[in-house]
Nucleic acid binder design. Sequence first.
DNA 1: CTCCAGGCTTACG
DNA 2: CGTAAGCATGGA
Length: 274
Amino acid sequence: MNVYRINTKDFNLDLTLSCGQVFRWEKNERWAGVVNGELIRARQLDAEVIIDSALDKKFIRDYFRLDDDMEKIYASMNKDQKIASLIRKYRGLRLIRQDPWECLVSYICSSNNTIRNIRNSIRRMCECFGDKIYEGYFSFPTPESLSEVQLCDMEQCRLGFRAPRVLKIASMIAKNEFDLYGIKTLSYEEGRRELVKIDGVGNKIADCVLLFAFGKLESFPVDTHIEQIMDMYYGDKFKGSKSKKREEIAEFAREYFGKYCGYAQEYLYLEDLG
DNA sequence: CTCCAGGCTTACG
DNA sequence: CGTAAGCATGGA
């Protein structure tokens, strides 16, 4: 077990872990989460972040995207007074670089669901089918382990209609019928075309995986929250039919906020949650 | 009771 | 092409 004391700039641990992009972190005296099968404990004192984990320091820096140049990113996406206000209000909110498999399953579970239910379902999946790595902490089940789970045994996780979708893609990945990790090397557009082939994955969930796991910062996932706040802030621009409206918003955001629009999405999303 | 939640699939014009 | 019901579950 290592202890890292990392000096940061423009990093806010609480905002980063509570903004809804990750589902398994919990805060008591300090934050605790399981990432890549290892426990991470984290707390922040002013600019200093203190990490306890068996993972190496480079992994931690990568996971929290500590090497992102936030001054440059803020300058790039700061297009008007509204987003400038959000940058002031939530300065230090970072994207996280999640594991693609856990991210994919998590967002398949997000379909027509609440954050509370998503968290509970994922926790039960880890308790039932992950490995116990510490008292009360479980790893996220691998595609291989989930591929051997029967649908009736998934019922206790309360995924509802999403359960067969999770088991199906788990099986496909375990049998090398779908190359999830290969998407890392594809462009945003190519990666999206691959991801939407998965049963239960449309444009929005694909965009979440591309942004939160594969680091495609030009991805701008549009859900009900983002649609509402974009309507409120920039609504006069979207006149398309209902079914195409979310695509229209995403395209506008890519053009308007630029190549780091994924970061802008996080700030807008947090504003709508709060 | 009804309605909705970080949507997607399928069915029907 | 386009739109709209249906989907499990839980909480307001």
